[in-house]
Design a protein around this nucleic acid. Structure first.
Lengths: 157, 157
DNA sequence: CTTGATGTTGAAGTCAACTTGAAGTCAAGG
DNA sequence: CCTTGACTTCAAGTTGACTTCAACATCAAG
């Protein structure tokens, strides 16, 4: 039984599936906030769980933390996002997923067309050409999120 | 006009689109090999271009360098791979792409089903659940390759 | 009030795939 | 022969998203 409805870091970790270190990291990045006890320990409101759900969803879609931060900033910081907010966001996510999907499909079809020939010519083969698989890629951030590792998992070593 | 048919590192870079530093790195990783001049400079055979095409294709599919190294090791090191080699490989690549594609489609459909509700419950929402985005799903490699940045790159700064 | 589980911070480490830099060597045209 | 541009090696840096560590503080129970 909690005396208050505030959650400790390990409780949030347990409920959200994020490691405590990740929670601290997210806070440092401005994705989360927490109140503090007089002794300086974090106490989270339950709404943080929803926020974390949002973050995980966004990570699953493939957004970087920076992009997530922007998206969160665009939402009313404290209040629960309205359905309109959510609709707008999910539309852009959908687009993003569709882009990724079609890039992969193009790649697969290129592969199919190569199966017969085994060419792998640097110039002719669809597979070995730049291919806009990079789905997002403005000129700015040229590095990839090559991850989305198991978003879960026990902090224990 | 070349006096020999061996290529310098910058020639290979220009023709393959890989940066010279990447070529050296690949050699250090055992993906490539090159003969040396008496002075110690690299000279590549033309076949290295095909090998690089293979590497780029594999990277586009989302394989790590380590996996590529394995794949290359499984091929006859020096000889041109047979059509059978190629078929086997491309079949597994195709599977991989299909897995990635279907994972993304699942994600997108989950998103669609969420658009109406805006729930994002940690437990109920398909989006925020671990979701096997990691496509491969063995306990081993839980990585999601989704990308493949501009594999191009003019070597010049 | 003591104790042990939890929590805090900041710095440093990790992973993949390269790139960058420093300091020095080689190749080839004039 | 000399210059210049291309090349060499090895170490360290970069990127993103965290994790790990050390050294210390707080919380809640008993």
């Amino acid at each position: 039984m909690k005396t208050t409805d505030l959650l400790t870091v390990s409780e949030v970790a347990a409920r959200s599936g994020f490691a405590p270190s990740a929670l601290r990291f997210y806070e440092a990045q401005g994705l989360l906030s927490a109140t503090r006890t007089s002794g300086g320990q974090r106490r989270y409101e339950r709404s943080v769980l929803r926020r974390l759900a949002f973050i995980r969803a966004a990570r699953n879609i493939g957004l970087s933390l920076e992009e997530i931060a922007e998206a969160l900033a665009a939402l009313p910081a404290t209040r629960t996002p309205t359905k309109a907010d959510w609709t707008r966001l999910s539309r852009s996510w959908r687009q993003r997923l569709n882009d990724q999907i079609s890039a992969l499909i193009k790649l697969r079809d290129g592969l199919d067309s190569c199966i017969g020939c085994g060419c792998l010519s640097l110039r002719r083969c669809a597979l070995s050409n730049p291919a806009d698989v990079a789905a997002g890629g403005g000129p700015g951030a040229a590095y990839f999120p090559w991850q989305i590792r198991r978003g879960d998992r026990s902090p224990g070593r």
